[in-house]
Amino acid sequence: MTAPILSARRLTQSFASRAGGWRRRVVRAVDNVDLDVCEGETLAIVGESGSGKSSLARLLLGLRRPDSGQILYRGEDFSTLSPARRRAYRREVQAVFQDPAASLNPRLRVQDTLAHVMLHHRLATRSTVRDAAAAELHAVGLTPPDNFLARYPHQLSGGQQQRVAIARAMALRPRLIIADEPLSSLDISVQTQLLELMTELQQRTGLGFVVISHDLGAVDSIAHRVAVMYRGRIVESGEQALRRPQHPYTKALVNATLIPDPRLARARHHLAPAEPVPSS
């Protein structure tokens, strides 16, 4: 692990919420978060809904402005980046989103989705763009690429759509991909294939991942480091965060995963109280 490519320093973002009546409440979605993502590592950010993990992802992607705190790209404050450095950031840090159907423009063919990106960044010319797009599809396991280039997103399965989204991100030769729940809408067999693809891409290109997820099991197989988020804060992080949890919330989270083994699952019924008080 080398120097951090992306860091957060005391990052805070609040939203005004109206939930539960007319009074406006301010919710701190991201609350004083410090984070470093090093080149080539896979960092998983886990937490339940409302923990602020997706808000954090959007901040790291520069899609929202923080209320306070800084984001550092290779040590430089994001808000004072020169245009050239900002372009470099936009090339080096890419994104994959949760719902693959929604993250591809429904009116663009696969080849156009890829071509727009490649042409804009001068990674291909009009004459070479088709072959370049085919090569990207090949690299994410969509073979033969000719079967996929002319298709629209709705003509692909969920797993194929997510592969196209990964291909679009990979086309820019990024050093870091921020993936917000990239697996949660997919079947377990497809999830496994995508996890394998991510590992393979990492080994081949040395790129890093930030994987945002609520699914501890999915994340555990690829993450070098895990950060656990709860109510906007990172309550625990490290290589052993899920294996040897220290924080009570992490423990609760780890214990709440369902066990795909009937004997172990039922043995647990005696350990845990049958029905905890419903949370508010």
Partner: peptide
């Protein structure tokens, strides 16, 4: 879970099991 009759079932079980690590309690 012990002896799945169909390979598809066996694969589903294997994938799920691989996903799950023993929790601290176990």
């Amino acid at each position: 879970f012990d002896t799945p009759a169909h390979p598809y079932t066996a694969r589903l079980i294997e994938l799920s099991a691989r996903r799950h690590r023993p929790t601290p309690q176990h």
